[in-house]
């Protein structure tokens, strides 16, 4: 399914479905968007994605330069290569946007996400949860006699894997931050 939820090759394309219906495969890209931290800037970015039918898989934002009032928005999105190019160009048009970087294509990068997991149980299940948490190098940040809150940091895939393991062991709630990412090596983008 394309981002507009129109099946590939379907005949009912309106004039506004401007994508090649037989386009290439869907790719996942991590974008770093450096913006002025002014009122409404996040709404502009999100509005762009919803208004033009793009996907957001995850989005994180925080001010990264308190003196210059600059924020960094990390967006994980997916689409065909032409859609990804269009997303970047559209982001670049937003007036308070300074820079748009596609970390997926601009060389190696690191991605990290933080997850909090509440797992409740007693007996073997509780022991197994703690044992697995140890294997994943997860911190216990809250504990009662019948529950844990685990803190895990890693790639989204690692967090997914941990979630799968916790599910049969009494997983009650999950909170995830979404991805923060930086390029590897010397030099800023």
């Amino acid at each position: 399914m394309s981002p507009l939820k129109i099946k590939k090759g379907a005949s009912s394309h309106s004039a506004y479905d401007l994508r090649d219906p037989h386009a290439e495969a869907i790719e996942r890209h991590t974008l770093a968007v450096v913006v002025d931290n002014e009122a409404g800037v996040l709404a502009r970015v999100i509005g762009l994605f919803s208004g033009r039918g793009y996907n957001i898989e995850s989005l994180t934002v925080a001010e990264t330069d308190h003196t210059g009032h600059v924020s960094r928005i990390t967006i994980v999105t997916s689409g065909t290569p032409s859609v990804i190019e269009q997303i970047k160009a559209q982001l670049g048009r937003i007036v308070p946007v300074h820079e748009v970087h596609d970390l997926t294509v601009e060389g190696p990068s690191v991605e990290r996400e933080l997850g909090l997991f509440k797992v409740a149980g007693t007996g073997d299940k509780r022991v197994e949860a703690l044992r697995l948490a140890d294997i994943f190098r997860v911190n216990v940040v809250d504990s009662t006699l019948e529950s844990f809150v685990f803190e895990i940091t890693g790639t989204p895939e690692k967090i997914d894997a941990f979630a799968e393991l916790m599910r049969p062991l009494g997983l009650q709630e999950v909170a995830r931050t979404g991805v923060a990412a930086l390029s590897r090596g010397d030099g800023a983008h």
Binding site: L18, S82, E85, Q86, A89, G92, R93
Partner: peptide, 11 residues
């Protein structure tokens, strides 16, 4: 003048 116009519809 607008980079987003390029390759939006026609390559």
């Amino acid at each position: 003048i607008d980079p987003s116009s390029i390759n939006k519809v026609i390559r």
